[in-house]
Design a protein around this nucleic acid. Structure first.
Lengths: 147, 147
DNA sequence: TTACCTGTAACTATAATAGTTACATTTCAT
DNA sequence: ATGAAATGTAACTATTATAGTTACAGGTAA
């Protein structure tokens, strides 16, 4: 099991929109950077648009961030690209046997624990923004070019 | 995406081994409580055994906990049933374009953040034990029978 | 030695991901 | 207004993981 790479691709896209903010960020250019298909990028862009993270218009080339860099958290992207439904990171087996002590209580007993773990993960994601990534990338670039 | 129910089934099994510790916990009995197939239970039991959480022997009916109740954490089970590989909860798209500033840095930039989020999740899981679940189930049972 | 159990291989059905092709629709430059 | 260039989507494929199932080899004990 693994959380879809739509998430990392979404972050890639948003970071690129900032770093290449003066360029023409078409789905083809973005696809070339991510190394995938323009149609796939457009799908993900559609999700980011729906979540209010980017501005795009049919027929008009390019996309822009719809919010400030520091206002877009990893959690926003994570939710935008729909990799995990609310409270469904962990799946719980259904229809356990109601004639068994464990069977009739396990779901209610486990679910709050799973929710907590999911919340811990999401809280961590909510503390990182696209700005952090962009700064990190710029920093890494500088490190390398100055060698 | 969703983390396999092997995890919740594993917890179910371990809790039942405790609550029914004086009974004969065959894969068939466990399967009936979980509401699935004995062969599937045996597969999961095999994983729990490999992780040192239960004692089973070929030909001999029943299984027992191999550790104290409070010594088995949710994280132990999570790792035992192999639902998520180490540092692979999030998948990162591979082969991003090395000719692009973002492409050549995104992986290194994102991966530590993902690791942190995964760590937060796993830390939460490490703080809950099978004992907690058993106590909760016993408590819930008492609540209902005393109505 | 028979009945019962565990361990496992092999198979199926279902669903999600990632990728791809194709095309309708929209916009802008000429 | 016409054509070039984008976006938006539907439809399809391949691959993989999950969950479930059947079947049977091998161990154990009454």
């Amino acid at each position: 099991m693994s959380i879809s790479s739509r998430f990392s691709v979404g972050i890639h896209i948003l970071a690129l929109l900032e770093i290449n903010k003066d360029g023409k960020n078409t789905s083809e250019l973005l696809a070339s950077s991510v190394n995938t298909n323009p149609a796939l990028i457009r799908k993900i862009m559609g999700m980011l648009k729906k979540a209010g993270l980017v501005e795009i218009h049919p027929g008009i080339a390019g996309a822009k961030l719809a919010k400030g860099l520091s206002e877009i958290t990893f959690l926003d992207v994570y939710q935008a690209v729909n990799v995990v439904n609310e409270n469904e990171l962990f799946s719980v087996h259904d229809n356990p046997n109601p004639n068994c002590t464990v069977g009739r209580n396990i779901q209610e007993s486990i679910m709050p624990i799973f929710s907590n773990a999911q919340l811990a993960l999401e809280t961590t994601l909510s503390k990182v923004t696209i700005e952090d990534v962009v700064m990190d990338i710029v920093h890494k670039e500088h490190e390398n070019t100055s060698k």
